[in-house]
Design a protein around this nucleic acid. Structure first.
Length: 149
DNA sequence: GCCAACGTTGGC
DNA sequence: GCCAACGTTGGC
């Protein structure tokens, strides 16, 4: 079963928001690299919920992918902040997936700890300058991170 | 708020 | 297909 990591600014959407909702749509991704990973997701895959651009950036919880990728409706909605004016309703290049809440960590695994963990050196997350917001996580990385909780 | 580093765009 | 310029990400 593949694993993933997805970033969100908690001011926009946090693990606590997902916990309250139970299920949500993960939309608004506007990077082709990230989108291409979303298209590889399968119903049931696990993912780490990463909080970015906040006081304590790091892994804040765990979720489960609850669908395969489908066209992101926010891309064609003029009222959405994620509206992409280049879409014309016929060609929507962007994808969304549904996600389920699994677990909120009692404390965030902060970025410096992730960077210091030898098992995670390959992750784009800890590489300097990397901005990838959706990335695969290997089985070894998944278990190493779970052990850091 | 700053700014390094990046991914994307678009002129050529 | 190159690559400079641009806008964005995201840690600090």
């Amino acid at each position: 079963m593949p694993y993933w990591l997805m970033k969100s600014e908690p001011d926009e959407f946090s693990i606590q928001d997902l916990e309250r909702l139970g299920r949500s749509r993960w939309d608004g991704v506007r990077s082709y690299q990230a989108r291409n990973f979303m298209r590889q997701m399968a119903d049931g895959d696990g993912f780490f919920f990463y909080h970015s651009s906040c006081a304590t950036p790091g892994i804040a919880g765990i979720g489960r992918i609850a669908s395969t990728a489908y066209p992101d409706p926010t891309a064609t909605d003029p009222d959405s902040p994620y509206f992409d004016p280049r879409t014309n309703g016929v060609t929507n290049p962007w994808s969304a997936v549904d996600v389920d809440f699994v677990e909120s960590l009692r404390s965030v695994i902060a970025l410096p700890r992730l960077k210091a963990e030898p098992a995670l050196v390959q992750m784009p997350l800890v590489q300097k300058g990397s901005r990838l917001s959706v990335m695969p996580v290997s089985e070894d990385e998944w278990h190493a991170i779970l052990a850091m909780r």
